[in-house]
Nucleic acid binder design. Structure first.
Lengths: 329, 329
DNA sequence: CTGAAAGCGCTTACAG
DNA sequence: CTGAAAGCGCTTACAG
């Protein structure tokens, strides 16, 4: 059904060598006339070289594998969205598969991508994989992690300078008059964002507010846990604001406040963390620290391209500032 | 770096033929002893056949290409999520690319998937592509559309019996005491869901309510347009409920009501359409008709598998009921 | 400048 | 039962 290079060559009255050279922009061995003739025939018959045949020789798949716990996860899909364009422009295709956060599935997907000869893998994970992937290479394939610092990172860590911005956010709450502020943070098994909680502790101290242990909930970063954590915090009658170390928590917090018959941003102020899309859609809007998603995406795309070109090259760490807008958003 | 079948063969002291047969479960020409020996060596060296070399012969890529306007779109990512597992189990890999709803990009992606020898393509689109893709085959590759009936469908249309459930929803509003109900529906260029609007018209008539043209807004199915449409409707002072023919509209509607200082489900009742995730997260919760996503996903997966096995086989139309829960959700 | 031919890593019809 | 060899559709070093 599909034409082969041989047929195109015979149609054009040249050798397969010439057709291949023209298609791959190799050298100037053919006249412009021939070039155009061949290209015209290719066009007419809608010919495209067999992807597998050329890859077996070029040993390049142009494929970048993405592993993500769940494709409906906003943080990940936002980032995938951002890196796709620059990578497409470099001639790479993204392929996304889901791991359901299962280590077994993650390993199976790595293996599948290896079989597909992926040139790089972008891995969203909360598993410790450094043992399987030393120096960020899985059987030679560069693996770029998005994992909040869980794995060693040969290709450079990314820091968001969360602390300073988070301090600013807490200070904003305090200036607004809040003195009983709750915190929902990680139980430290899944995630490790100590700066976020530290900002809370330090900002309270710097403003002469004492730390109330009843105001602190440690849990996992899900909407449900945010909901439950907030229910607990709401038992503290004086509490008037909650700082959530993640937007999923913030969303659950928002729901719990509403369901408890209170009004968000009126009875209880919320501040979230990451700046995912959904927080813009809910009402009242929930304030959040924003990741600089655009720059973050560009960096990841560049990291991947660099890692493909030079898998053995260490890449530097990068620092970004988080964004927090004190005024109305 | 990567081992070849020849090296495995020589390591095992057998021919490449035998190794290939063992790896591909072809025949019983080898002893169990040899089989185990080869498998052990394969295991030890973590050998996997070169994907491209085998595909060039088998002419099977095991790849299913997905084209989606935007990966962050909840409807699409929900569905992709649902079909991935059954398709993986059949040995297929999903590859997802974004079209930004641009016809040009859609065609480019179809072409790219053709070059990748995708075995089937799942296309989320609002473009009329029947001209390029007659009988749902693009250069022989089966294309399954998710497109609300825009394109011809050789592989069977999917109907959601939206009408009956939508009538029930409107009746529910009327029974609740609403007699001034707004409608936000499509401007008919992008989408064609006439049953949704008809249900509104008919239910009003059946309950002896006259149709007020001021209560009807025709627009596109986006959050922004839902917002603007609602602003228009809110100028109608007697209006106390709005039926949105899409969940994006419902979300924009929800926002506009809040921003106008009114209370959702108290001053103005909303009913949406599709049952996407986000409506469960907002507060107050917005009632919506639900697609039977689970069954829908299973059907699409089956359609794809069937289309790959028998590309020339017409597939039957399918009818689903929408879900509308009158009580609390 | 041009094309015949070798070779990429597999699979499989075929000969022994 | 087993393996040498042809062949999949390309690319490219090489010979003319």
């Amino acid at each position: 059904m599909k034409l082969t290079i041989r047929e195109i060559a015979s149609l054009a009255g040249v050798s397969t060598t010439t057709v291949s050279h023209i298609l791959n922009d190799k050298g100037q061995r053919f006249s412009e006339e021939i070039r155009e003739k061949v290209l015209k025939i290719v066009e007419e018959h809608n010919y495209s070289p067999n992807y597998f045949a050329s890859n077996i020789i070029k040993n390049k798949s142009r494929l970048i594998g993405v592993i993500v716990p769940d494709i409906t996860e906003v943080f990940a899909s936002t980032l995938i969205n951002l890196i796709r364009k620059p990578l497409n422009e470099e001639g790479y295709n993204l392929m996304t598969c889901e791991s359901s956060s299962s280590l077994e599935e993650e390993l199976a997907l790595l293996e599948r991508y290896r079989q597909l000869s992926a040139e790089a893998i972008l891995m969203f994970t909360s598993s410790k994989l450094s043992e399987k992937i030393t120096n960020n290479r899985y059987h030679g394939i560069p693996v770029v992690f998005i994992d909040a610092g869980i794995n060693d990172n040969y290709y450079g860590k990314i820091f968001f300078n969360e602390y300073d911005t988070a301090v600013r956010a807490i200070n904003w709450l305090i200036k607004k008059g809040h003195s009983h502020i709750g915190l929902i943070t990680a139980n430290d098994k899944q995630h490790a964002f100590p700066e976020r909680a530290d900002a809370y502790y330090d900002a309270l101290a710097a403003n002469g507010l004492s730390l109330n242990k009843q105001y602190v909930v440690k849990t996992e970063f899900t909407i449900e846990k945010g909901y439950e954590g907030t229910q607990k915090l709401l038992q503290q009658e004086k509490l008037t604001a909650i700082f959530c170390c993640d937007d999923n928590l913030a969303l659950g917090c928002y729901q719990a406040i509403y369901d408890a018959g209170k009004v968000v941003n009126q009875d209880i102020d919320i501040i979230g963390f990451d700046g995912v899309e959904i927080l813009k859609h809910i009402r009242p809007k929930v304030k959040t620290l924003h990741l600089p998603f655009g720059d973050f995406g560009d960096l990841i795309a560049t990291k991947i391209i660099t890692a493909i070109a030079e898998p053995l090259k260490k890449q530097p760490d990068t620092y970004f500032n988080m964004i927090f807008n004190e005024g109305e958003e």
